[in-house]
Each structure stands twice: as C-alpha cells, then as structure tokens.
Simulated assay, not measured.
Amino acid sequence: MAGGMIKDVLHEADLNLGGKPEKIIMLKCPACGTLNEENSKFCQECGQKI
C-alpha cells in the first residue's frame, strides 16, 4: 500500500525517476546571455528580440 501511495505522489509531482530524461531546448539571448524558453520571441530578462 505504501509503495502505491509513493508512486501516486511522484506522479502528481511530475517527477520522472529512472525514466528517459526530457530534452529542454533553451535559447541564449545575444544581448545579455540569459537562457530563454525555445518559443520565446523576446528575452525574459532584458526584452531584446531573440
């Protein structure tokens, strides 16, 4: 029973233990060097167009 509860908590927390890691693509702002999400059109830090 406890194992099932732990599995449920991990699932709800969206943790992936022992599975294949998810690839995350980040874009580096040419002006300030901040990493931004792949679909960003403007830098989240300085507002410069990416």
Score class of each variant (00 low, 15 high):
residue 14 D to K: 13
residue 4 G to D: 07
residue 28 K to F: 07
residue 21 P to Q: 03
residue 26 M to I: 05
residue 34 T to E: 10
residue 31 A to Q: 15
residue 22 E to H: 10
residue 24 I to C: 05
residue 39 N to R: 13
residue 14 D to N: 13
residue 8 D to P: 00
residue 9 V to A: 13
residue 33 G to F: 08
residue 16 N to V: 10
residue 22 E to V: 11
residue 46 C to W: 08
residue 6 I to G: 00
residue 7 K to V: 01
residue 9 V to W: 05
residue 7 K to R: 14
residue 39 N to S: 15
residue 4 G to I: 02
residue 23 K to M: 06
residue 5 M to W: 03
residue 27 L to Q: 13
residue 10 L to N: 07
residue 26 M to G: 02
residue 49 K to N: 11
residue 38 E to G: 06
residue 22 E to K: 15
residue 44 Q to D: 12
residue 24 I to R: 14
residue 8 D to Y: 05
residue 25 I to Y: 13
residue 40 S to G: 09
residue 14 D to R: 12
residue 32 C to V: 06
residue 45 E to I: 03
residue 35 L to M: 15
residue 12 E to V: 11
residue 7 K to S: 07
residue 7 K to D: 04
residue 12 E to Y: 11
residue 38 E to P: 02
residue 27 L to P: 00
residue 35 L to G: 10
residue 12 E to R: 15
residue 46 C to S: 11
residue 7 K to I: 00
residue 22 E to P: 00
residue 17 L to P: 00
residue 36 N to C: 10
residue 50 I to P: 01
residue 20 K to T: 10
residue 45 E to N: 14
residue 2 A to G: 00
residue 18 G to E: 01
residue 42 F to C: 07
residue 30 P to G: 04
residue 38 E to K: 15
residue 9 V to C: 06
residue 50 I to W: 04
residue 8 D to K: 12
residue 40 S to Y: 12
